[in-house]
Write a protein that binds this DNA or RNA. Structure first.
Lengths: 336, 336
DNA sequence: GTGAAAGCGCTAACAC
DNA sequence: GTGTTAGCGCTTTCAC
């Protein structure tokens, strides 16, 4: 009850067990090449239990020059669901290595001023995972140059020479188009975000897929906008109200998909009878739209888990594959 | 470029500036009662710049017996949006105190085994914020007994004697009912989660509000369920298809609200003409339902910010009010 | 005004 | 097999 801040140290354990501090350390860290007599080990372990000893990670980090924490950086406006799911994977991947997660937000800053760089310099971080954070090439170079271990988690390959885990969701686009066609659909539209990053090739993949199926891309059926809800709605409305409106629609992101559903309701267009919709991405709101939304869903948890493993290996100096691609999955619900 | 892991210490700064390590510390920490000659200060600051020195927070923590990090705990299945918004507030509240955020998930465990307790015992945490994490009274007692500083962020007052920040959203329920009545509505229903925690009095507040307006509570118009989407839909469907169905509906949570909208579409009930819906809580999906959802929205960011401030004060040994109540706000959109 | 020195709790040579 | 010891980088008392 009253053990308020009277923290016990390995010294106390040593005294209690009648051994030296070093022995305690050897035992607790399972140091290789150090053989401990079973009874000594038992005595120490007993003392640990009895005194309720917990190694001071700060002191440990001081000695080992490690913080036992890794920074997870995200954009402030990233879709929460993406981040949280990825975070869960990261957590579980980090857990058994005794690494904790320090949460950081990405703010547009000069490389050397970035919060995560300062944190790294202050020994608060042993490495960084960027989870759907828009990190520019200069920053990546800066971090690499400084020797800061980091891993990117993002939709698909960046064009940078960095460690990253991404997914093959673009390769599902042709399947979506084929699926639409198999349902007897001819006029297929696209509504998605303005391609911002160079590595964002959703729209391009859509065009290729359409051509690949022997159809022509009708540019009237392709709309893009920024991430503002009203702008997305306007873009969708353009599609819904145009002369020869599409019979099927690929939505470039979850929010585009959901707003397209709303928009079709607004204009009294029956989904999926008059318009089929399939979205790119994952959301926990796909099941609560009417009708529920089909989508190419990302392996967010696995991506986080894998990124954690990669980063740990990187920090430990193990050999690591530069890039991991995890499989997405087309999930058909009521909208398509 | 090549300063790979060749970290500079305050010793290096001292040498560079031709002073002692102590002086560097005095200057960098602005220690009271220590007067430094301007030129000394300037010399040290120059050296800091020149060498790009960053204090090692681990070493600092070691000396000060602080980790300069606070743990933020949430349930794994908490609505992401709640958590992220609160987190942003916490972040900003912590920032200028140089505290970082260590992210932790709440798992059902014995008090002493809980991850955050272990982290605290290992000096990785100076305090804890529970953000919409369902922490039971025994745990609260345990933490208090151990002298672990912690703050709860939740909807409304727990019945525990703990530091907490909550919101007055229950007090908006009568206003919602009055609003409905002012629109000429008589039959008002409720769809919300099964009251799990003792402190969850949404439904109770609903009943009181109905009575307070001189109406009777029709128990046929009150449905509850657990948080499973299908179960929520069933509950909503019961309401939508019952003999004398409600003209207005209070949804106990964002997800209940959104699923009620879906359900009314499913049964061809026009919102808000035939059924008005107002939800309790905040979501970034209220604007993408059709029609958009009115709601009593929580001051999530402010709650996080306030909790951070309280915890810092608690850790610093300042006097702190036990409980803070921040105002929610009824936001009318298209559904009500 | 500034410096010398002790020590936070741990790990890891090295000694025996 | 286990103990001795020397720090890791910082803060802080005490001395001057």
């Amino acid at each position: 009850m009253m053990d308020v801040k009277k923290s016990v140290s390995s010294r106390d354990v040593a005294r209690e067990a009648g051994v030296s501090q070093a022995t305690v350390s050897y035992i607790l860290n399972n140091v290789e090449n150090v053989k401990i007599k079973p009874e000594t080990r038992a005595a120490v372990l007993d003392a640990v239990k009895k005194l309720n000893y917990h190694p001071n990670e700060i002191a440990r980090g001081m000695k080992l020059k490690k913080s036992m924490s890794i920074g997870v950086v995200t954009d402030r406006n990233v879709t929460n669901f993406y981040f949280m799911k990825t975070l869960e994977g990261i957590r579980d991947g980090l857990q058994r290595h005794n690494y904790s997660i320090t949460l950081l937000f990405n703010k547009p800053e000069e490389a050397a001023d970035a919060e995560y760089v300062r944190y790294y310099d202050s020994n608060r971080l042993d490495g960084i995972i960027f989870a759907f954070a828009d990190i520019d090439p200069d920053m990546a170079d800066y971090l690499t140059g400084k020797g800061i271990p980091f891993v990117l988690v993002d939709y698909n390959h960046s064009n940078k020479d960095v460690y990253e885990v991404c997914t093959d969701y673009l390769s599902h686009i042709p399947k979506v188009i084929e699926y639409f066609i198999s349902k007897g659909v001819k006029r297929i539209g696209y509504a998605g975000p303005n391609p911002a990053r160079i590595s964002d090739s959703r729209l391009e993949a859509f065009r290729r897929a359409i051509l690949g199926c022997g159809l022509d891309v009708d540019e009237d059926l392709v709309v893009t906008s920024d991430f503002d809800d009203d702008r997305i709605f306007e873009a969708a409305a353009k599609l819904m109200t145009c002369e020869k409106r599409p019979e099927a629609l690929l939505a470039g992101s979850p929010r585009f998909g959901i707003i397209c559903v709303k928009c079709s309701q607004r204009f009294g267009i029956k989904v999926p009878e008059e318009l089929k919709i399939i979205a790119l991405g994952t959301s926990n709101f796909f099941t609560v739209t009417f009708p529920s939304l089909s989508a190419v869903e990302l392996p967010l948890y696995d991506m986080g888990f894998k990124a954690a493993e990669m980063l740990i290996d990187l920090i430990s100096g193990h050999k690591v594959e530069k890039s991991e691609v995890l499989p997405s999955e087309l999930i058909i619900r009521d909208s398509g």
